[in-house]
Design a protein around this nucleic acid. Structure first.
Lengths: 116, 116
DNA sequence: GATGCGTTATACCAAAAACGCATAACGCGG
DNA sequence: CCGCGTTATGCGTTTTTGGTATAACGCATC
């Protein structure tokens, strides 16, 4: 009815904050998942295609804001070092995963097909 | 059962993109609303508490991406100039407002009380 | 007990983006 | 034709982000 409309698309996202600062979102979630899988921040960063520096900054910021260890890391030793998720971080990761899944399902069903 | 938990809060937002670039979100919505109300980009910026430069950049970027005029502006003349919303922009504004309202209602009911 | 290795950790420089001030352009009213 | 307040834009500054280089570390091996 109205001339051709631009290819607008609706986007949305959900994340966690603490004191107004983001602590947990899409990217950090994937990072932690890969750390758990690989036992290494370095390997996780490589697999994500981001520089190690950035990954480390993510982890550091998360810990500062959350106030508890997120990644238990050891430098040196066998293999040069190793990193594992803290139990609290693992729990948070799973919790957030469920939250995001519900959220995405809801939003996709509800909005993306409304022909905006 | 688990010691004291940090004051995590769930946040989310919705916006419009075109070719992966954001065109319409919280801030731009308010800006356009104030432009409509005041008939001036300048006054809208003042009321929003952002520099005029920034407001103008917003409008300019929106128009470049949307491909149609968003704010019909005239410089010079009575009062120094005047700006009004284009009909298309006004329609988009209302549409987005409803979308956001639904979205927020949904999210608030569904997630924010789940005691994350 | 010295050395090698691959990781964590951090310093530092470069690039990019955001910010803000200054100034030009404009057109109607007086 | 001058003043006024708005739109429009150039440009230097500041802040953020990105990426490279280098140090610190500790176990295994020799």
């Amino acid at each position: 009815m109205s001339g051709r409309e631009p290819a607008l698309e609706v986007r949305s996202k959900i994340w966690l904050e603490i004191d107004g600062e983001p602590v947990f979102g899409e990217g950090r979630e994937e990072l932690l998942r890969l750390v758990r899988k690989n036992g290494s921040i370095n390997a996780a960063a490589r697999e994500m295609g981001i520089p190690y520096r950035k990954a480390w900054t993510y982890v550091d910021a998360m810990e500062k804001r959350l106030g508890f260890p997120v990644v238990v890391r050891r430098k040196g030793g066998t293999g040069g070092g190793v990193s594992t998720l803290s139990p609290q971080a693992a729990a948070l990761l799973d919790k957030f995963h469920r939250l995001k899944k519900d959220f995405n399902g809801l939003v996709n069903r509800k909005f993306l097909r409304l022909g905006f």
